[in-house]
Computed example of a mutant assay.
Amino acid sequence: MEPNFSLLLTVIGSIIALFIFFYILPINLWFTAQLSGVRVSLLNLFLMRLRKVSPSLVVNAMITSTKAGLNLTSNDIETHYLAGGNVNNVIKALISADKANIPLDFKLATAIDLAGRDVFDAVQLSVNPRVINTPPVAAVAKDGIQLIAKARVTVRANINQLVGGAGEETILARVGEGIVTTIGSALNHKEVLENPDRISKTVLDKGLDSGTAFEILSIDIADIDIGENIGAKLQTDQAEADLKVANARAEERRAMAVASEQEMRSKAQEARAKVIEAEAQLPLAMADAFRSGNLGIMDYYKMQNLKSDTDMRDSIAKPGPGKGKQG
């Protein structure tokens, strides 16, 4: 039993050792590479294991690129892998660009990939342009009529501007700005409705794709709707504001008139008080005149008769209640 157990351990150990050996030295992968015309040494595959690089990924990428006629080295692919790039995506992008006669080298492709953009999608976008629909853009012509326009922007990727170039948001913002400028410069809204291509020509002439990752091929106005009469609305709002100002000024003048009236009443009351005060001094003056002999009793009676006569004439001159003019 013991010799059989030792033999079993030896066989298991040999299998494990062979597995480790073929894992460290992927002979089958090296053999596949040789058959595919890719020159890579076993030592290089062993060193890839030590550098924690997947030999199968590198070899398969080299096989694919070699079959496509691309001249790439294992060092190039390994460097991009260690930098955190997507090797398979870069290889597919290079092959697509080569077939479509788009100038794209490995250095630029890896730079685009490491910048966070999908380089394969960018190549596809260069071959098949994309249509971007703008949101509704509202603008007001000089006659005060609001127009709401929608546009379709056909773009394709600009490979050389993908690194550091602005994205779709910038394109949409610039197109919207161009639409607002064109409509705002029109004398009336009918000009824009009759010639919508005027917007496209004006916007295209501005070179809106400068500094972006795209090249604008065309701008087509999909729809133009008439919005509100902004001019009339502004005039109405201005008239309401003027009316409020006028009412406020009238109220101010009324308040000032009321205050002036109250002031005059106060002055009249003050004058009346002074008269009453003066009349209250009259009996005292008369008494003093009697004592000093300057006023006699007959003089007093004459003054009373004169006062009574004056009061009678005043009562006759005033019309009584219910009396009117007789014709």
Rank of each mutant, 00 (worst) to 15 (best):
L295K: 07
I63C: 07
A141L: 04
I230F: 03
V245P: 02
L70E: 10
V59Y: 01
N305G: 10
K206D: 11
T212R: 06
Q161N: 15
V245L: 14
N294P: 02
T134K: 06
V137R: 03
A33E: 10
A17S: 14
M256A: 13
T66W: 01
K233L: 13
R291T: 12
F106I: 02
Y23V: 11
I316Q: 12
Q161P: 02
I199G: 08
T236Q: 13
T154L: 10
Q269T: 09
A246M: 06
R272W: 08
L208H: 05
Y301S: 13
S218F: 05
L108E: 13
S126I: 02
E251T: 07
N188L: 05
V180G: 07
K67D: 12
I159T: 02
I91C: 01
G178A: 15
T202L: 01
R130G: 06
A157R: 00
A285C: 03
I20H: 04
S210W: 06
G84V: 04
M303E: 14
A289Q: 08
D197V: 02
S126M: 09
A239W: 04
R272L: 14
V258K: 02
K201P: 03
P136I: 06
A173E: 15
G184N: 08
V87M: 00
K233G: 11
D242C: 02
N247Y: 05
G165S: 06
N28V: 12
